[in-house]
């Protein structure tokens, strides 16, 4: 009755209405940004009086935006590699280790995910002041690594726990050394976990803004920091263009994740 859409009676109308409303609430702002990024109005009139690529041109001709884009990308790329590598090792230890306090350690590794970011941002800002790491590439990488690592550990640990360890044992009995068995059998076996870990680590760094606001220097600004700084001054349509590109990137990564999931089922 209540879980049968066809037999929901008058409740069905209410449910469809709310779903429609919330769907619009969630989707329209995103569509609005995309539309405005192609709109000709400097003051974000809607519907736009005309269409233009002017804001994209402004964006791509501004070396500061390009620099921020590259900075964000480099940081996110380095963070992704380190996060997956460190996360992979940690996950092996957490799922297969027999040392005491494994659960406590797992909880500690996940804490950065549940703690308010602003606390970490302020704390790291103070700490990096002393180490002269604020405004440095290395500082950004370290900070974002702390944010990204929990995603890596969750994704890879889950995959490792689902991976039948007897398969690795079988590889060893077949003559592979323990390391060779891990590389040739276990890593391919958990590849979807590794891909998830990479995607989430990348997004965690790429989208991170709070810590970055504190740590950024005029010379080293990630993309989110530049967006935030611009937004505090005015609602330039250039931001709509940047946002549209970011939405496209997110949608692309989501499609990639969905593709790998489907691939796993076939």
């Amino acid at each position: 009755m209540l879980l049968d859409f066809a037999r929901l009676g008058p409740w069905r109308v209410a449910l469809i209405l709310i779903a429609l409303l919330v769907g619009a609430y969630l989707l329209l702002p995103i569509l609005l940004i995309i539309a405005l990024s192609f709109g000709s109005s400097q003051w974000l009139q809607f519907p736009p009086p005309g269409w233009t690529l002017r804001w994209y041109e402004e964006l791509f001709e501004d070396p500061e935006w390009i620099a921020s884009f590259l900075t964000s990308f480099k940081i996110a790329a380095v963070v992704t590699v380190l996060s997956v590598g460190i996360g992979l090792m940690a996950s092996f230890g957490l799922t297969r280790g027999t040392f005491r306090g494994r659960e406590a350690l797992r909880a500690l590794f996940l804490t950065p995910m549940i703690l308010p970011v602003v606390v970490l941002a302020v704390a790291l800002y103070a700490f990096f002041l002393r180490l002269h790491l604020n405004g440095t590439f290395f500082g950004f990488v370290l900070a974002h690594l702390v944010i990204a690592l929990p995603f890596s550990i969750i994704a890879i640990s889950n995959a490792l726990e689902r991976f039948d360890r007897d398969i690795e044992t079988a590889a060893i009995v077949c003559g592979a050394s323990p390391l060779e068995a891990k590389i040739r059998v276990t890593l391919p076996g958990i590849r979807l976990g590794l891909i998830s870990a990479a995607i989430f680590s990348f997004l965690a760094s790429w989208d991170e803004v709070v810590i970055a606001i504190f740590m950024a220097s005029p010379d080293l600004q990630t993309l989110p920091v530049r967006i935030y700084g611009t937004l505090r001054q005015d609602l330039s349509p250039v931001i709509a263009a940047v946002s549209t590109l970011l939405i496209a990137l997110t949608a692309g990564l989501m499609a990639l994740a969905a593709f790998f999931r489907k691939d796993a089922r076939s």
Binding site: D164, D166, I167, T169, A170, A171, I172, V173, C174, G175, A176, S177, P178, A181, V185, P188, G189, R191
Partner: peptide, 21 residues
Amino acid sequence: EPSNKRNIGMVFQRYTLFPHL
């Protein structure tokens, strides 16, 4: 000798084929 040097064949209880091969 470690397992991988014993040159012994083994079939396990669960299907332990390498899923990606």
